[in-house]
Simulated assay, not measured.
Amino acid sequence: MSYLFSRSELIIVTTLCVPLLLLGLLGNILTILVVWLRPQMRSTTYLYLSSMAVSDILMLVLMPLDLYKLWWFRPWLLGDAVCKLSQFVSECCTFSSILHMTALGAERYLAVCFPLRARLLVTRGRVRALIAALWVVALLSSAPVLVLVGVESVEGGDPECRITQFAQASGLMTAMLWLCNLYFIIPLTLLSLLYGLIARTLRQRAHAHRDHTHRQTLRMMGELRGAT
């Protein structure tokens, strides 16, 4: 049996992760229950949040398996299917959360900068369809992981859940790294642009409101002088 870290380090990590697992599951489950048991909470924003809560729950459910990998990463005794599916679900949930945050940012941009158009375009039915599409994109983007990882022995050693030699030799690993980088760079750039435009719009409205208030004050002062 092989360890990646010392036993004291593993005990500390496990002690920290268990409360996070319980609190995370409780908080995300409550989020889903509140949204779906209270019809008034089913706004488009909360639809995104409840979908992201599902993603978080799946990630948290995998935490015991992640701890298992830290304690007993070699030899791997859970089979090739568990190795592949755990990595696939983890990657899929990560991609899904990024896509959800990007879509939510785009919706906030429409709501602030084009409120009338947003009321026509952003409906609960369309948001539900978009959320389903985001999950499909995340699933397809994560599909290469099923080939990328597997149970293999290195130089005749014990089997472990790792990146396969085929993935390294074929260039699939490099392609997946590029995809992961794009999943962070493109949404980060897009969100930075959208929130910058939101901030500019809010500043312009605040400035216009101050000018309007100033003009009203001057008009009232002029009317009072004329009356006296």
Rank of each mutant, 00 (worst) to 15 (best):
I12H: 14
Q165C: 09
V13M: 15
Q216H: 11
S153F: 10
A206Q: 07
C93F: 01
S141T: 04
A129R: 10
S2R: 13
L140H: 15
V54L: 09
T164N: 03
A169V: 15
I98R: 15
T31H: 11
S141K: 02
L190Q: 15
S142M: 02
L134Y: 00
S8R: 11
S170A: 03
W135Y: 03
V151R: 04
R108I: 08
G79C: 09
T31C: 07
V127L: 00
V137T: 00
A208T: 02
I131T: 00
L62W: 14
G27F: 06
S50P: 14
G156F: 10
W71C: 03
I11K: 07
L194F: 14
L172Y: 01
E107W: 01
I163Q: 02
L65C: 04
F166P: 12
L188H: 06
G171H: 08
V127A: 01
A133H: 00
G125D: 02
T123H: 11
L10K: 07
V137W: 00
D158T: 13
S153T: 07
F88L: 14
E107G: 02
C83L: 09
L25R: 05
A169Y: 06
E91N: 05
K69G: 07
M101T: 03
V154Q: 06
C83K: 08
M173T: 08
P159M: 08
P19M: 07
A129L: 14
S8W: 13
E91H: 10
E9F: 13
